[in-house]
Design a binder for these strands. Structure first.
Lengths: 187, 187
DNA sequence: CCGACTTACTTAGAAGGCTAAGGATATTTG
DNA sequence: CAAATATCCTTAGCCTTCTAAGTAAGTCGG
């Protein structure tokens, strides 16, 4: 498990105060890594890697979607999903199935084992969340969430524009249709 | 450059709304990745990798510190710093020097080339920052910064505790002494 | 129906980060 | 002083993610 000395933490804190410019970006990055480490530590005690958590979360909420849809929901590229799913298949958490008459798409289903992890793992994430926001008021958290969403949208717009991405924007209905292949499979 | 279709973005947004629990952690992660991608895109046009940016930022603010101190400031583990510094040395951005009478520590110094990158690269980070916070009020940004710092501290405390890290906490004076080996080398 | 395009999965390889472990050098302590 | 301990750099190897490129399978206009 990652262990950074208190000295290192103090140095970092000290340094953080002395940089005028893009502090915000670095604060966000640090917070993200802190959250990641905290969760990773806890997941590791149950033999689950952080990378797999990302996908399990989604599958618990309704499995059976195509591999590509899973990528989209996780917000990662296809090869990432591919290797994670392959690994989880080997661990017995998921199964990859094809539908007759469609040799193209691969649908990802949780096994009973994969399902059973939910009750053990979700509380860990909740614990991390609780620790992270300790001492913050609900109002502050809501404000932060709103600000983060605005930033994400700003950046996505910038990115889309930079990529010359002038494809049409799909309607919510279409997306909903695409997602509906996932059955709500509440344990 | 990473290009995610609008469809993928909409799917992600849709999904994001439907997860009750640890949304905050995922928003922070997404924001962090968005910021990273935006900066990476711009750095790449100048032939600088995102990994090197992390260290250059610090060195521009005062180089000549030991490799270990650089790790601490960057908030990464030593091997990460080692390979980045080695790579930047090969690129001619930094030099690794030893002091006579100390065969242990390696001090990292910017070359003129390394220095010269500052004027080109810093504006890119400022641009990304400006894009990200577009539409947010100063008040909101300050609030977010405060909340993020609180979260980082909460998590660091948790981490230190989990690691059984009951070492004494060094004073600010000690840390300042350790940092003072870096000369303020404003271009 | 057929060729062109698009979509979905896969493979290969690299970047960036981490842990674990090793070697060398300082520092502290008996 | 010498031995034990701590610190710093390095090596090795894994994990997560990405880009680039390939392959197979559906879709669509003519």
């Amino acid at each position: 498990m990652t262990k950074r000395s208190n000295l290192a933490q103090v140095i970092q804190h000290h340094w953080r105060e002395s940089v005028p410019d893009d502090r915000l970006a670095h604060l966000i990055k640090d917070a993200s890594r802190g959250l990641g480490r905290a969760l990773q530590m806890r997941l590791a005690e149950h033999g689950v890697s952080f990378g797999h958590w990302t996908f399990l979360r989604i599958l618990w909420n309704g499995d059976g979607m195509a591999q590509r849809a899973l990528s989209d929901m996780a917000g990662v590229m296809e090869p990432t999903t591919f290797s994670a799913v392959k690994a989880m298949e080997k661990l017995g958490y998921v199964e990859r199935r094809q539908k007759p008459g469609d040799r193209k798409q691969v649908f990802i289903h949780l096994t009973p084992l994969g399902h059973s992890l939910k009750d053990k793992l979700v509380p860990l994430a909740e614990e991390v969340n609780a620790i992270a926001v300790e001492g913050l008021e609900e109002r502050e958290i809501i404000a932060m969430r709103k600000a983060l969403l605005a930033m994400i949208d700003n950046l996505a717009r910038d990115e889309a524009q930079a990529a010359g991405d002038n494809r049409r924007i799909p309607s919510t209905r279409e997306v909903a249709g695409r997602l509906s292949s996932a059955q709500p499979s509440r344990k």
